[in-house]
Design a protein around this nucleic acid. Structure first.
Lengths: 199, 199
DNA sequence: CGGAATTAGTGTCGTTTCGAAACCAAGCGA
DNA sequence: TCGCTTGGTTTCGAAACGACACTAATTCCG
């Protein structure tokens, strides 16, 4: 067998490699990698996170760059802009029907399908490990974490509804499984023993 | 609880996200993402694969681009060029001491460490799933697969030595755990009870 | 209330990267 | 020996990205 100590290297490399391979679009799609990421992000982030700043911190880039990417999506009529009532500076974006249609051709599709072929237990285990890695890494680098509201410390199911302490308001149930920029992990769920798989 | 069918989406996204986050170098390192990948690749690929073409297909880019990246590493004296005796067109690269020193500051280090913190069982399971995903994805896209000689169909341990049918020569033992461009998977090594519908 | 400081978003400019295509040189095959 | 293929390099143009400057809405005190 192979020297144990080098396994983490191989895993890390493979992870990065798969990530890159999954996004290689190569002319057969009409969007750039950044545009795909943006479209995907707007499809999966909650209302208060689907903003230029939200995307900028997700993509770890500047707001200026994010703004450009979004503008290009807007020009293609894949997303629409809505100005917030709360804060008149802020805007948020939603996918148009065209945007959703485009998303169906996401080059990530292949990876998604391949993941879909895994059996459920394996998939769950994989997800659990992967999200542990994601938050541990985010912590080390101190990057914003980006998890779903359901896993967040700010989240408490109050009665029938769900309350987000961070925005100080009730969450639409549709938003619970969505990405949130002010996500704060509920402290590492430890590996041994099952995690209680909240969602 | 979330609609099961969307889990693969989340996993795929998370995977890509972690991949990107792991490579974000952001000024605090002096190499670009592509340069890091190249350096890493030359550190971990076997002799006949450490070439411009090898890197090009690994990185899924053109040979021209690969050539530029390599040239920049050469200029920084992180790698050295050796012309092959067998085929006078071909060149291969090795890391210099400086290159190895640089590699110690690989921004991937954080991810590697975080992976190293997993317990062995979890890590193995993760690796197994991940490599299954990698080859399934490569097959779908038909990209070259890039595995280690030890897992390759061309490989047979003949007596004390190891023989590679594809290059028609003995392998140095040091090369067995290394990446090879002409890797052909021996059909999925299943961890335990195999599923037969895989591909 | 009012003015500084902060935050959201946008536009511009220059650098860097990357892919396409043309090109050279060595091997291969008949 | 003459084509054909393959490994590698160069050039050129397009596009992505980061840095920076700017506007406008909001918040924070005094």
């Amino acid at each position: 067998m192979i020297d144990e100590t080098q396994t983490p290297d191989r895993i890390a490399e493979l992870l990065v490699h798969v990530g890159r391979a999954a996004r290689s679009e190569h002319a057969r799609t009409e969007l750039t990698a950044a545009q795909w990421t943006c479209l995907r992000f707007f499809a999966r982030a909650n209302g208060s996170t689907r903003t230029p700043s939200g995307f900028a911190s997700f993509q770890v880039t500047t707001r200026g760059t994010a703004s450009q990417i979004i503008k290009s999506l807007e020009r293609m009529e894949l997303v629409t802009r809505t100005r917030s009532d709360r804060d008149r500076r802020s805007v948020s974006f939603d996918l148009t029907d065209q945007g959703r249609a485009m998303l169906a051709q996401d080059p990530l599709r292949d990876l998604i399908d391949v993941i879909g072929d895994l059996d459920t237990a394996e998939r769950d285990a994989f997800l659990a490990t992967l999200s542990r890695l994601a938050s541990a890494l985010a912590m080390r680098r101190d990057l914003p974490a980006f998890g779903t509201c359901g896993d967040c410390t700010h989240f408490s199911p109050s009665g029938g509804m769900a309350y987000c302490a961070c925005m100080a308001e009730e969450l639409a149930t549709a938003d619970i499984p969505k990405l949130c920029a002010s996500y704060t992990p509920t402290l590492e769920p430890r590996p041994q023993g099952d995690r209680d798989d909240a969602d």
